[in-house]
Measured scan of single mutants.
Amino acid sequence: SPEVQIAILTEQINNLNEHLRVHKKDHHSRRGLLKMVGKRRRLLAYLRNKDVARYREIVEKLG
């Protein structure tokens, strides 16, 4: 489901952010981070168009 995919991506994004705080010059990982953020944004847009209630619920849960 989109909610699960968004939750997994959010966790991976948070982990990668911590990694990049330590390894500032790791541009390869930064590119992966940007791809993940874009994918999460697309999934959220899809969910917002399909079911606003589910969209609001996941945004509330994940912050």
Rank of each mutant, 00 (worst) to 15 (best):
S1N: 10
S1W: 15
S1T: 09
S1C: 14
P2G: 03
P2F: 14
P2D: 05
P2E: 12
P2M: 14
E3W: 06
E3R: 02
E3C: 07
E3I: 06
V4W: 12
V4P: 03
V4K: 11
Q5F: 07
Q5I: 12
I6V: 04
I6C: 02
I6H: 01
I6K: 00
A7R: 09
A7N: 07
A7V: 09
A7I: 14
I8Q: 10
I8W: 14
I8H: 09
I8E: 08
I8Y: 13
L9E: 00
L9Y: 03
L9F: 02
T10E: 03
E11D: 07
E11I: 12
E11M: 12
E11R: 09
E11A: 09
Q12Y: 10
Q12C: 13
Q12K: 14
Q12W: 12
Q12S: 06
I13S: 00
I13W: 01
N14Q: 08
N14H: 09
N14Y: 08
N15W: 14
N15H: 13
N15M: 13
N15T: 12
L16K: 02
L16T: 03
L16W: 06
L16S: 01
N17Q: 14
N17W: 15
E18Q: 09
E18F: 07
E18S: 08
H19L: 07
L20C: 05
L20D: 02
L20G: 02
L20P: 01
R21V: 05
R21I: 06
V22G: 08
V22N: 11
V22F: 10
V22H: 13
V22W: 10
V22E: 08
H23M: 04
H23Y: 06
H23F: 06
H23A: 05
H23K: 04
H23G: 03
K24I: 09
K24D: 09
K24E: 08
K24N: 12
K24W: 10
K24Y: 08
K24S: 12
K25V: 05
K25R: 10
K25S: 13
K25I: 07
D26N: 04
H27N: 10
H27A: 09
H27I: 11
H28A: 14
H28C: 13
H28I: 11
H28S: 14
H28M: 11
S29C: 12
S29K: 08
S29M: 11
R30A: 07
R30H: 12
R30G: 03
R30N: 06
R30Y: 10
R31D: 07
R31N: 07
R31W: 06
R31Y: 08
R31H: 08
G32I: 15
G32T: 15
G32Y: 15
G32A: 15
L33A: 02
L33D: 01
L33Q: 02
L34G: 04
L34A: 10
L34Q: 10
L34E: 09
L34W: 12
K35W: 12
K35S: 09
K35E: 13
M36G: 01
M36L: 15
M36C: 05
V37Y: 14
V37W: 09
V37T: 04
V37F: 08
V37C: 12
G38L: 15
G38R: 15
G38S: 13
G38A: 14
G38H: 13
K39D: 09
K39H: 08
K39P: 00
R40W: 06
R40S: 02
R40H: 02
R40A: 04
R40G: 01
R41I: 07
R41A: 12
R41V: 05
R42F: 07
R42T: 06
R42M: 09
R42Q: 10
R42E: 09
L43F: 03
L43V: 02
L43D: 00
L43M: 04
L44F: 03
L44Y: 02
L44S: 00
L44T: 00
L44D: 00
A45V: 09
A45D: 09
A45T: 08
A45R: 11
A45N: 10
Y46N: 09
Y46Q: 12
Y46C: 09
Y46W: 12
Y46S: 08
Y46G: 05
Y46V: 11
L47A: 00
L47T: 00
L47P: 00
R48F: 13
N49P: 00
K50F: 14
K50L: 15
D51F: 03
D51G: 02
D51C: 05
V52L: 14
V52Q: 12
V52G: 09
V52R: 12
V52K: 13
V52T: 09
V52S: 12
A53V: 12
A53G: 10
A53H: 13
A53R: 10
A53I: 11
A53L: 12
R54D: 03
R54H: 05
R54E: 03
R54Q: 05
R54G: 04
Y55G: 01
Y55A: 02
Y55Q: 02
R56N: 14
R56D: 09
R56M: 14
E57K: 07
E57V: 06
E57F: 04
E57C: 08
E57Y: 05
E57N: 06
I58M: 07
I58G: 00
I58W: 05
V59N: 02
V59Q: 03
E60N: 09
E60H: 10
K61E: 07
K61Y: 09
K61N: 07
K61V: 08
K61S: 12
L62K: 02
L62P: 02
L62R: 02
L62T: 03
G63F: 15
G63K: 14
G63I: 15
